[in-house]
Design a protein around this nucleic acid. Structure first.
Length: 593
RNA sequence: GGGGGUGUAGCUCAGUUGGUUAGAGCGAUCGCCUGUCACGCGAUAGGUCGAGGGUUCGAGUCCCUUCACUCCCGCCA
C-alpha cells in the first residue's frame, strides 16, 4: 500500500462505504460554514468532497489551509444524504470525513485561480504553465493528446508499420522554411540544422529496405507563429511506404483517420470516403487549396461575361480587356436580405485591401432583372448566361470580384468564409475531409519571376516518367496530395521521385545545377543511385489533429509547454543569453549592430 | 517587416463629455455561520491606470513615442 494514498480522488463510491481510506491531492475548493467545512480534494483522477466539523480538534488548522496546498488526509467514507448527492461528480454519492491530515507541500499565493473556468491572459498562463495545466479543460486536452498518440501508434502497428527514430542534429537544406542552426564545437565554423521534417531520412529508410516506416516526429521550422501554428517546433505522424502508388497511401490514411475521428469525437463525418479535388478545381471553386467543404458556397469564373457587347459595366470590362479575371460567389435565396447585409460584405472586402465586392440579386417580375448597385449594367440575356455559369436561380445573389487571378482567388476564398459565417451556413458539428490532388510541380516565384518548386522537390511527376515532356514545366503535375479537414491543412504527402536522372532534370528547371544537388542533397541523391524502391508517404500534423478533436481554435490549448508568439518560453526563459566561454568554445562571436 | 485588438488591485473586468478621494466580483487576511458543492454574511489590506513625453487649471480618459501580449498579412518546399 502506498504511503500517500489508498485510493485516488476519482474512484471512491458507495462500494467503499464505511471504509477508512487515505487520499492525497490539492485543495481545489473550500466551503467553510464556520463549524463545518467542505473541502474538495483534487488529483489527476478527479475530485472528492471531504468534510470536517469542529468536533475534531484539527478543524481550526484544516480550515486555514490555502487553496492548492498539497495534503494527505485519512478518513472514513460516508454515504451522502440523497438531497446532498452531487450528480456532476463521479464521487458525488459519497464524502470522506477527515480524521487526520498532513500537509505535503505549502503554496504561495496563486497568480491565477485553478478551479475556475475563466479565461486568462496568455502571458500569465504561459509563465505559470504548471498551474495552468492543473486546470480541468487544458488538463483533459493534454490527456486526450496522449490517448490520440497512443491510438495512432497502435493502429500503425496493426497496419504493419514500424516506428524508427531519425536524427535531430542533421544538415541544413536550401529548400523550404528557415532552419534552426546548431553550431558544431568539433567542426569549427560549421553548423547542424534541426530537421524541418525527417523527409530525406524516411526516404533513406525505404532505400534501406524497411518497407513501412512511421514516427511521431518532432519538426523544427524557424517561421512566425499563427493560432494553428506553433513557433519553432511541432509534431508530425511521419509515414513512408515502399512499392506503393498514391491509392495505397490513401487507403491506409483514410482508414486511420476514420477510426481516429470516430473514436475521439462525436461529431459527424460528412464523407466516409474522402472526396478528391484536383488542385486546379479547388483553386477555382473554393479559391484555396484547403477548402472547407462544410461551406456550401461555390466560386465560378464569369470573366467571359465582361467581353459581351450587352454588358455596360465599364470598370470590369476595361480590367478584363487588360487581362484581369472576374469570379463570383453565389448565395441562395438572399435577394430579400437588407441592404446592410450586402454593404457589410462590401465594406469587409475593402478592409481586406481589395476594391470591394460588387453584387446584385436576381429577380423576376415578368422578366429577369438584377437588383443592386451594379444591376443596371446587365441585360436579360446576359443574366441568363450568368445564371447558367453560376447555377443561379431567381432570388439568389451574385458577389463579384475582378482583378489578378491570385488576388481574386484569395479575396473570394476569404469571402466564402465571411459570407458563410454571416449567413450561418457552417455546421460546427461536422468534420469534412477531402484530398486535394494533382498539385503542380512548379510555379512562378512572384518576386524573382523564376520557376521554383511549388511544394516538395522530391515528388514524382505524373505521366510517362521515362519520356516526360519537360518543355512546359508549369503544366507538370505531381503525385502530391494534401488532406484537408474543415479548411485546415492536416497533412501533405507525395509519391517520391526515386529516379536520380529525372530528379536532376527537375532540379535543373528550378535552377539547381547537378553539382548543387549533389552537394545539398547528397544523402538522398547518392542513395537513389543504389537501387531505390518506388515509395511514397505522407505526414499528418499531430497538433492540428488534436486541435480538431479537442475542438480548440488555438494550438497552445493542446500543447503542454508552448512558446509564445515571439518564440519565447516564458516559464523556462528561453531563448536566453549564454556565457562568453560557451560561445568561444563554439567559435561563435556575436555580431555588433 | 506591415496591419488590427488588448493593457486599470494577485486574477477577471467596469470606469459616461477630460472634473473632487479610481470601483465591482473572485482571491488574500480577520470575524460570524453545521449540509455546502461558484455556500452565505461582515470588515480589512491591496493601484507607477504597461512605460515615457505632450496638450490642459485639471488626464485612467485626448495627442505623440515606446513596450508587452494576441490575431492577421508576409513567411511556413
Amino acid at each position: 500500500m502506498s504511503k500517500y494514498r489508498t485510493h485516488n480522488c476519482g474512484e471512491l463510491s458507495l462500494k467503499n462505504k464505511n471504509e477508512t481510506i487515505k487520499l492525497s491531492g490539492w485543495i481545489n475548493k473550500k466551503r467553510d460554514h464556520g463549524n463545518l467545512l467542505f473541502l474538495d480534494l483534487r488529483d489527476h483522477y478527479g475530485l472528492t468532497q471531504c468534510v470536517i466539523d469542529k468536533s475534531n480538534t484539527i478543524f481550526k488548522n484544516v480550515e486555514k489551509l490555502p487553496l492548492e496546498t498539497v495534503i494527505q488526509i485519512e478518513g472514513k467514507v460516508l454515504e451522502r444524504d440523497t438531497d446532498t448527492v452531487n450528480k456532476i461528480l463521479k464521487t458525488g454519492e459519497i464524502e470522506v470525513v477527515i480524521q487526520k491530515y498532513k500537509v505535503l507541500a505549502d503554496t504561495k499565493e496563486l497568480p491565477l485561480p485553478i478551479f475556475s473556468d475563466q479565461e486568462y491572459a496568455e502571458e500569465i498562463r504561459l509563465k505559470y504553465r504548471f498551474l495552468d495545466l492543473r486546470r480541468n479543460k487544458i488538463h483533459s486536452n493534454i490527456v486526450l493528446r496522449s490517448k490520440i498518440i497512443s491510438f495512432i501508434r497502435s493502429e500503425m502497428q496493426k497496419y504493419g508499420f514500424l516506428e524508427y527514430q531519425t536524427p535531430i542534429l542533421t544538415s541544413s537544406s536550401p529548400e523550404g522554411a528557415r532552419d534552426f542552426l546548431v553550431p558544431s564545437r568539433l567542426n569549427p565554423g560549421k553548423f547542424y540544422a534541426l530537421p524541418q521534417a525527417p523527409q530525406q531520412f524516411k526516404q533513406l529508410i525505404m532505400v534501406s529496405g524497411f518497407d513501412k516506416y512511421f514516427q511521431i516526429a518532432p519538426c523544427f521550422r524557424d517561421e512566425d507563429a499563427r493560432a494553428d501554428r506553433s513557433p519553432g517546433e511541432f509534431y508530425q505522424l511521419d509515414i513512408e511506404m515502399s512499392f506503393v502508388e498514391q491509392e495505397d497511401v490513401f487507403k491506409i490514411v483514410e482508414g486511420l483517420f476514420l477510426n481516429l475521428f470516430k473514436k475521439f469525437s462525436s461529431k459527424k463525418l460528412l464523407h466516409e470516403k474522402f472526396p478528391r479535388i484536383p488542385y486546379d478545381e479547388a483553386m477555382l471553386k473554393y479559391g484555396s487549396d484547403k477548402p472547407d467543404l462544410r461551406n456550401p458556397l461555390i466560386i465560378s469564373d464569369i470573366t467571359q461575361i465582361f467581353k459581351r457587347e450587352d454588358v455596360n459595366f465599364e470598370i470590369f470590362k476595361n480590367l478584363v480587356s487588360n487581362g484581369s479575371i472576374v469570379r463570383s460567389i453565389l448565395t441562395k435565396n438572399t435577394s430579400e436580405k437588407p441592404r446592410s447585409f450586402f454593404d457589410g460584405i462590401d465594406k469587409w472586402a475593402k478592409e481586406e485591401g481589395s476594391s470591394g465586392l460588387a453584387y446584385f440579386s436576381i429577380e423576376n417580375s415578368n422578366k429577369l432583372t438584377a437588383k443592386g448597385p451594379v444591376g443596371k449594367f446587365f441585360s436579360e440575356e446576359c443574366l441568363k448566361e450568368i445564371m447558367k455559369l453560376t447555377n443561379a436561380e431567381v432570388g439568389d445573389t451574385i458577389f463579384m470580384s475582378c482583378g489578378k487571378k491570385i488576388d481574386v482567388e484569395k479575396l473570394l476564398s476569404n469571402a466564402r468564409n465571411k459570407i458563410a459565417s454571416e449567413l450561418s451556413l457552417i455546421d460546427e458539428n461536422i468534420f469534412s475531409f477531402c484530398w486535394v490532388v494533382d498539385y503542380p510541380i512548379f510555379e512562378i516565384d512572384e518576386i524573382t519571376k523564376k520557376i521554383k518548386f511549388s511544394h516538395n522537390p522530391f515528388s514524382m511527376p505524373q505521366g510517362d516518367i521515362d519520356n516526360l515532356d519537360l518543355s512546359d514545366p508549369l503544366k507538370l503535375k505531381a503525385f502530391q496530395y494534401d488532406i484537408v479537414c474543415n479548411g485546415i491543412e492536416l497533412s501533405s504527402g507525395a509519391i517520391r521521385n526515386h529516379k536520380p536522372d529525372l530528379m536532376y532534370k527537375l532540379f535543373n528547371i528550378a535552377g539547381y545545377s547537378r553539382e548543387t544537388v549533389n552537394e545539398k542533397f547528397s544523402g538522398m541523391i547518392n542513395a537513389l543511385s543504389y537501387g531505390a524502391p518506388p515509395h511514397g508517404g505522407i505526414a499528418p500534423g499531430i497538433d492540428r489533429i488534436v486541435m480538431l478533436l479537442a475542438d480548440e481554435k488555438n494550438i497552445r490549448e493542446v500543447t503542454m509547454f508552448p512558446m509564445n508568439q515571439n518564440a519565447q518560453d516564458l516559464m523556462m526563459n528561453a531563448p536566453s543569453d549564454v556565457d562568453d566561454n560557451q560561445l568561444k568554445e563554439l567559435n561563435i562571436s556575436k555580431r555588433k549592430k
